[in-house]
Design a protein around this nucleic acid. Structure first.
Length: 490
RNA sequence: GGCGGCAUAGCCAAGUGGCUAAGGCGGGGGUCUGCAAAACCCCUAUUCCCCGGUUCGAAUCCGGGUGCCGCCUCCA
């Protein structure tokens, strides 16, 4: 079945048809580097990352461009309030962005263009817009004339006349029409500037995405992503600039993710109700944040709460634990299934069937507009089926091959990987996870096992309780004790 | 004033014309276990905000209502 994508431009799900066969070109609006990013921003990074991973799994080669906005009024303000240079703000938060992006489990985009490195192409673009009669200079600024671009409003379903009537359009003495937007902004004293045919200044915010997307992806590309708050005016203006320059549609599918809410209201910098991703990741673990972002369909708003994080953490623990159990069974040193049982007993055949079923269902979910909520549900079902096999159907441990369990393990890892969840890595990790931790805990548990074999259970329990208080959860199983890092507060 | 979205169990959430309304968390009962934890099993929505309509059949389509949210200004 072809992949279905919801297109904001048409308001419908459409089958994916790429400009070039087998190749997807995707542009995503990245961060403005003036602060650490919050969970709302994180969603806008995770969504294209999952789209990319899924498309690649389906055999597409994906070229992904995600910009870094390093020219912006907010950066200038931030530099002033911190009393440091603009360059320093840009440097600091670009670094932090990349760090947090990787921690979120996102792959590096193929290209990460910075606005500062593309002022030349932006100026060229303004020239073309002048040539096409869509731009005008006024008071040192250059504006885009929305009245000269008949298709203005197509993405957000706004009419230019209605925009005029609305109370919230930015007024400016220089604008011919209230909805006109700035392409080039004259520099005030003390602000960063670039030379241009219209004097010293800097490009308008919307311009960079037009210039850089076309620079790396060409005049026609497939997918453009961003948060729903960018539909108007950012993406509307981007369409006006790009189409106004080349004379035809540039982007096929416009994909917008829903907001992250706090107490029913949009999480945003201006409201001050934001949670920085790095803070939440410190406390709950980055995978928990990522899974929560994927637990609802990408277009639906998510209310971000402690309760939701808690529920997500508990669910994920089961998933990770299942994979950990499988890994232990499959370890060369571990006691293994007898060969006759592993060969093709009814239990193995049943499990094989389940693996196929769940894999197909996972794909069915993902190809329907990247329904990660449903895909995640199939992953949970897979884990339960594997656990059921492990607890009910497993015969006495003996050496022998276990192809079904190997397949189960690989499938979980692969499907988890499409969602960007590394199920084979620890769910909780800490800054102080040194080389020492693992052998040290193993040593303690070895001694505790000795104590248990002497049936001194009160002492054994005390060790377990004390470790739990340190965030190390010990579980005794038939094959001995196992342990995971968990949140010490729970 | 214009444009758009949402309303499904105690909580979160998938499902957009027809099989038993996914899945997660929580709760109850059980199996296993020195205990605990984990895991597994069973139970936890006769019904999808309300009222009409279309249809053999609707959570799903149409009309009306109520409530909440968003965009129209920087915002992911």
């Amino acid at each position: 079945m072809p992949i279905q994508i919801y297109n904001t431009l048409t308001g419908k799900k459409e089958p994916l048809e790429t400009v070039e066969p087998g190749r997807v070109k995707m542009y995503s609006c990245g961060p403005t580097v003036y602060d650490y990013f919050h969970v709302g921003n994180a969603r806008a990074f995770v969504v294209p990352d999952v789209i990319k991973r899924y498309l690649r799994d389906r055999g597409y080669q994906v070229l992904h461009v995600q910009n870094v906005t390093d020219i912006d009024d907010k950066i200038i303000q931030r530099a002033q309030s911190l009393g440091v240079s603009v360059d320093e703000v840009v440097d600091r938060y670009t670094r932090a962005y990349l760090e947090d992006l990787l921690r979120l489990g996102c792959e590096m985009p193929t290209v990460l263009p910075r606005a500062r490195d593309h002022v030349g192409p932006m100026i060229d673009l303004i020239r073309v817009l002048f040539d096409n009669g869509l731009a005008y200079a006024a008071g040192g600024d250059v504006y885009f004339s929305v009245e000269r671009f008949p298709r203005y409003g197509q993405l957000s379903r706004q009419e230019v006349s209605q925009l005029e009537a609305g109370a919230r359009v930015e007024a400016s003495a220089h604008k011919r029409h209230p909805a006109d937007f700035v392409l080039w902004k004259a520099a005030k004293p003390g602000e960063p500037w670039w030379e241009s045919p219209w004097g010293r200044g800097r490009p308008g915010w919307h311009l960079e995405c037009s210039a850089m997307s076309m620079a790396y992806l060409g005049e026609r590309f497939d997918i453009h992503t961003g948060g729903a708050d960018l539909i108007f005016p950012h993406h509307e203006n981007e369409i006006a600039q790009s189409e106004g320059a080349v004379g035809h549609p540039v982007v096929t599918y416009w994909v917008h993710n829903g907001y992250i809410n706090v107490d029913g209201e949009k999480m945003s910098k201006s409201l001050g109700n934001f949670w920085l991703f790095r803070d939440v990741a410190d406390r709950w673990g980055a995978p928990v944040v990522r899974a929560l972002l994927l637990s609802k369909h990408y277009r639906t708003p998510i209310d971000f709460t402690e309760e939701a994080l808690e529920a997500q953490a508990r669910g994920l623990e089961r998933l990770y634990r299942t994979v950990g159990d499988l890994a232990r069974r499959l370890h060369p040193d571990a006691p293994q299934l007898s060969s006759e049982a592993a060969a093709a007993g009814p239990a193995e055949q049943a499990l094989e069937r389940v693996l196929q079923e769940k894999e197909a269902a996972f794909h069915e979910a993902m190809e329907d507009d990247f329904n990660t909520a449903m895909a995640l549900a199939r992953l949970f079902e897979l884990a339960r089926e594997v656990n059921r096999y492990l607890t009910e159907a497993e015969p006495a441990p003996q050496p022998g091959p276990q192809p079904t369990l190997h397949r189960a393990y690989r499938l979980l890892i692969r499907l988890g990987g499409i969602l960007g969840l590394r199920l084979d890595e620890p769910l909780h990790s800490r800054a102080d996870d040194g080389e020492l931790l693992v052998p040290l805990v193993d040593l303690i548990l070895e001694v505790r096992q000795q104590v248990r074999s002497e049936r001194r259970f009160d002492l054994a329990d005390q060790i377990r309780d004390r470790l739990k208080a340190l965030g190390i959860q010990v579980e005794d199983t038939r094959e001995g004790a196992r342990w995971i890092l968990s949140d010490a507060s729970r």
